[in-house]
Write a protein that binds this DNA or RNA. Structure first.
Length: 196
DNA sequence: ACACAGATACTCT
DNA sequence: GAGTATCTGTGTC
């Protein structure tokens, strides 16, 4: 399946890209085989002004360096010491935005809808490793292709998960998922601690 | 159906 | 040293 063109990721509206990735197919070819899934849940992280973003206030470190680079590359980082999380870098070079891929409907083993129903679970399902950090999703064994059309009526927007530390930005509706999907990590609207 | 704790390692102060 | 874009198992209603 043909990889998506970089032009989609170069868009400077990260929420638009997050929504556009719903229904796309994510693939990873490893030594143990080819795995794929339909993206059913994403989150947008919007550069310097977004306090939930790793690049908030222009923070630039070894960890988040790829966010400042070319769109269409993978930003993989370790969370809670245990889980690897996969993002797609978006926007122009120097504008550190990314879309977190939060859930997949696995292809080939549809009976197990929950095997990739969360950002840490999907990287384990696909076989993502820290070495995938920075690789080009437009030309590598980790890539995106077309999948299913997702009409606007099927897209639900909610605040993002696990970013209460971001104050008012924790309330931004930057999470999107496909209504009715069994693989979504938290289909119902979550409870949010509201400290602004 | 929640609610909680524990795991675990890396990043940044 | 503190915090973390999470997941699982166990306990309670």
């Amino acid at each position: 399946m043909k990889a998506l063109a970089r032009s989609l990721f170069e868009n400077n509206d990260v929420l638009f890209v997050a929504r556009s990735l719903l229904g796309k197919t994510l693939w990873l070819q490893t030594e143990t085989g080819l795995r794929a899934g339909i993206i059913t849940e994403t989150e947008a992280y919007a550069a310097q002004n977004d306090r939930a973003c790793h690049a908030a206030n222009g923070r630039r470190t070894a960890r988040n360096e790829v966010m400042y680079g070319e769109a269409g590359r993978a930003y993989v980082y370790r969370c809670y010491g245990i889980h690897l999380l996969l993002n797609v870098v978006t926007a122009a070079v120097g504008k550190p935005e990314a879309v977190l891929i939060r859930a997949l409907r696995p292809l080939g083993i549809e009976h197990n809808a929950s095997v990739a129903s969360g950002p840490g679970k999907l990287t384990k399902y696909l076989g993502i490793s820290p070495q995938h950090n920075g690789i080009d999703l437009c030309d590598s064994p980790l890539w995106l292709s077309e999948g299913e059309e997702v009409p606007d009526e099927a897209v639900v927007f909610t605040p993002r998960i696990g970013v209460a530390y971001a104050g008012r930005d924790a309330l931004l509706p930057y999470r999107c998922y496909i209504r009715g999907e069994k693989s979504v990590s938290r289909p119902l609207f979550p409870k949010y601690p509201l400290h602004i």
